[in-house]
Write a protein that binds this DNA or RNA. Sequence first.
DNA 1: TCATTATGCTTTAAGTTTAAAATATATGGA
DNA 2: TCCATATATTTTAAACTTAAAGCATAATGA
Lengths: 150, 150
Amino acid sequence: MKTTKQYGKHADAALGMWVKLARAYATFNRETVKDIRRYGLTQPQFGALECLGHLGAMTIGDLSRKMLVSGGNMTCVVDNLEKEGLVRREHSHEDRRAVIVALTEKGDTLFQEIFPEHAERITQLAAVLSEAEQAELSRLLKKLGQALAD
Amino acid sequence: MKTTKQYGKHADAALGMWVKLARAYATFNRETVKDIRRYGLTQPQFGALECLGHLGAMTIGDLSRKMLVSGGNMTCVVDNLEKEGLVRREHSHEDRRAVIVALTEKGDTLFQEIFPEHAERITQLAAVLSEAEQAELSRLLKKLGQALAD
DNA sequence: TCATTATGCTTTAAGTTTAAAATATATGGA
DNA sequence: TCCATATATTTTAAACTTAAAGCATAATGA
């Protein structure tokens, strides 16, 4: 959304940057969602599958923190993945409050199959930028994201 | 989420970039949501208010396209804004299918009051990057976002 | 002119998302 | 040891989000 009003040079630059960040994210995300839908998954479900597939079993709390979403939300996502037989819940022996979630064999098989294809699609989408541009964008985004994470 | 698996040099770079984009967005967004909540609004509500405040009355379809969300969703957002007396719906004379949504006086007053403060907050958040970095980030994000919008 | 196709908004159903509340468990200090 | 505080997960309520369906209106072509 293009602002026509002036709020100061610094503010206008910052607002413009934020708008472009939000739009680039929304647009890129829409394409990834389209790809993921081919596998019968929603994006949050795919994200959880990916997290578990790469990093292994973990508590729901850890999963929600890695994915930057709330615990209540992750409960819902895991509920649906469990319904599809892609993950299983186990209670932790170390801490009886905690629930460990892991990929089932079915879930791991699906992950192994679809992640490379999805990675290929992400590569295609990112190809509008050169390698150097991708690297620079990564550097700046990392700087922005990490500074605000504190 | 850090991938430990190798999918090829190009794919790894693209995946890394996408992860950083998603995380930077999520983190920056969380901060903007926190600011907006001070005014008793949700983020989508604030976005609609901002759009109407800057660009004036428009159809619900136009609004949803500018905000890159679905029409069904915008109906819901506008419903709640209408409930708060911040916007009003009017039927279009040119096209009787269309609904025009505009800020009420109450809505405009609120917008005029809170947007400058919010802009200030965005400026603060963006200040972890230099002016040059902000400009470069904007350029790359614009390039990425526009290429995918086609 | 009329029928077919397209389009605008709303509703529906399912999933996501949050903060806060609820319940059980763990931790730390007196 | 005991109690206050903290924490893990789930539930609840409200809002968001999508695609598809529904309904009304507009556009187009025979």
